[in-house]
């Protein structure tokens, strides 16, 4: 029964990881591509890690929880990298299917230092 649960988690996780990469390859502009890897891939790897934790807990006859650490780390860092990437893309003014709001275009220069390096 537990083995079935682990198998299910593994396959679900792999399917989500695959869908995330499929979104990365398939969608049309950068900002929509960003959605696939940040959500689907993160949850996919999360499922795999939980399956791994269960598997090793059964094998070693004691709780093996260090996979939780990687899961937590991924769930905390994935949105941060996504935010940084979106910010970089807005800064470079990548073209987008959605209309960019005016306020962001007005605030394009981030710091005085940046202006100096570009001149």
């Amino acid at each position: 029964m537990l083995e079935f649960l682990i198998s299910l988690l593994i396959v679900t996780g792999a399917v989500f990881a695959f869908i995330g990469s499929l979104g990365l390859a398939r969608l049309k502009d950068f900002y929509t591509r960003l959605h696939g890897p940040t959500k689907a891939t993160t949850l996919g790897v999360g499922c795999l890690l939980i399956a791994s934790a269960l598997h090793f807990s059964i094998i070693e006859q004691s709780a093996s929880l260090h996979e939780v650490l990687v899961t937590l780390f991924l769930f905390m860092t994935a949105p941060v990298s996504a935010h940084m990437l979106a910010k970089a893309a807005l800064h470079l003014g990548l073209k987008s299917l959605a209309k960019l709001p005016d306020a962001t275009m007005a605030n394009r220069s981030m710091s005085p230092r940046h202006k100096q390096t570009r001149q």
């Binding site: 593994i10 990881a17 591509r33 890897p37 993160t42 790897v45 791994s52 470079l92």
Partner: peptide, 23 residues
């Protein structure tokens, strides 16, 4: 086609590699 796209692809590669190692 753009640099952020490539960085995003690299980031996804890292996460997929983690998945491969766990498997």
């Amino acid at each position: 086609p753009s640099l952020p796209d490539r960085i995003l692809a690299l980031d996804t590669l890292y996460v997929n590699t983690i998945a491969l190692l766990i498997l």
